[in-house]
Computed example of a mutant assay.
Amino acid sequence: MSKLDEKIAQYSKFMDDKGLKYDLDLLKAVTKGLGPSIYKRDAETVSGSDPKELATVKNNFLIKKLGLADGPKLDDAIAKVIDAIGKSERSKYRAVVYYMLAVEFGKESIYS
Rank of each mutant, 00 (worst) to 15 (best):
S2Q: 06
K3W: 09
L4S: 03
D5E: 15
D5S: 14
D5M: 12
E6F: 08
E6R: 13
I8P: 07
A9H: 06
A9P: 01
Q10P: 03
Q10V: 07
Y11S: 09
Y11N: 12
Y11L: 09
Y11I: 10
Y11Q: 12
S12M: 05
S12P: 07
F14S: 12
F14C: 08
M15Q: 11
M15I: 01
M15H: 05
M15S: 02
M15R: 05
D17A: 14
D17I: 05
D17H: 08
K18F: 08
G19E: 08
G19R: 11
L20S: 02
K21T: 12
K21N: 12
Y22T: 07
Y22V: 05
D23L: 02
D25Q: 14
D25T: 13
L26S: 08
K28R: 15
A29F: 04
V30C: 07
K32A: 13
K32W: 01
K32P: 00
G33C: 04
G33S: 11
G33R: 04
L34V: 03
L34Y: 09
L34M: 15
L34I: 05
L34W: 05
P36L: 10
S37T: 15
S37A: 12
S37D: 12
I38E: 04
I38N: 03
Y39Q: 04
Y39N: 07
Y39P: 04
R41G: 03
R41Y: 09
D42E: 14
D42V: 13
D42K: 14
A43W: 13
E44M: 13
V46T: 05
V46L: 03
V46I: 15
V46P: 03
V46G: 04
S47Q: 05
S47G: 06
S47P: 00
S47L: 02
S47C: 00
G48W: 01
G48F: 04
G48A: 06
S49D: 13
S49T: 15
D50F: 01
P51W: 06
P51R: 06
K52N: 10
K52T: 09
E53V: 10
E53C: 12
L54C: 09
L54D: 10
A55H: 11
A55T: 14
A55I: 06
T56H: 11
T56K: 13
T56V: 14
V57W: 02
K58A: 02
K58G: 01
N59D: 12
N59W: 02
N59S: 14
L62F: 00
L62W: 01
L62C: 13
I63R: 13
K64P: 01
K64H: 10
K65C: 00
K65W: 01
K65H: 10
L66Q: 10
L66H: 06
L66T: 05
L66A: 08
L66Y: 04
G67H: 06
D70L: 00
G71S: 05
G71A: 07
P72K: 14
P72F: 03
K73P: 02
L74Y: 04
D75H: 07
D75N: 15
D75W: 05
D76T: 13
D76K: 15
D76N: 11
I78N: 07
I78E: 06
A79I: 01
A79E: 14
A79L: 03
A79V: 02
K80M: 03
V81H: 00
V81E: 03
V81Q: 03
I82D: 11
A84I: 01
A84F: 01
I85N: 01
G86C: 11
G86V: 12
K87D: 09
K87R: 15
S88I: 07
S88K: 15
E89A: 13
